[in-house]
Write a protein that binds this DNA or RNA. Structure first.
Lengths: 69, 69
DNA sequence: GTGTGACTCTGAGTCCGTC
DNA sequence: CGACGGACTCAGAGTCACA
C-alpha cells in the first residue's frame, strides 16, 4: 500500500495476467494496447491515465480497484 | 457502471467531497491539485493519470476503487 | 516472449482570468 | 463557491528497432 501507484499497478497487472495464463503479446492484442506499452506498465515505468487502466481491467475481467488498490 | 470512466470518477469525487463538507478550493489545496482541475474532474471533462487519482483518494481517505469502480 | 531507449504528437496539468 | 475559457509547458500515448 505504501509503494508507488505505478509499481502497484505493474505488480497487480503481471500477477493477474499470468494467473490467466496469457502472454503480454496476447493480452496487448485483447486490450488493444501496444505490446511494449504493456511491458512498460508491468515494470511500473509508466504513469497511465484512467482510460488506459479501464481498458486493462475490462480485458482482464476485473475491477479497476483490483488493479490499483 | 457503463458510463465513461471520467464521468464515474467525477460523480464519485463530487459525492465524496461534498459528503465530507469540503469546498473544491479547500480540497484542491489538500490534494495539492489546482482548483480548476478539480472542477474539470468533477464534470468528467478530464482523463487524469493514476498518480492524480491516488492523491485524490489519499486526500479523501478512501481507496482508489471507491473513486473509480 | 519480453525489456529498453528513442522518437513524435497529443493531451494532462497549471495558471491567468470572468461570470 | 463553482463553471468555464484561453494559453502555456511538459509528461503521457503510442510506436519502432533492437537487445
Amino acid at each position: 500500500m505504501e509503494a508507488d501507484v505505478c509499481k502497484r499497478l505493474g505488480g497487480n497487472l503481471k500477477r493477474l495476467r499470468t494467473a490467466a495464463g496469457r502472454s503480454q503479446e496476447d493480452f496487448a492484442h485483447d486490450a488493444d494496447i501496444h505490446r511494449t506499452y504493456i511491458s512498460d506498465l508491468e515494470r511500473g515505468a509508466r504513469n497511465p491515465t484512467i482510460r488506459v487502466v479501464d481498458r486493462l481491467a475490462k480485458a482482464l475481467g476485473v475491477s479497476m480497484g483490483d488493479l490499483l488498490d
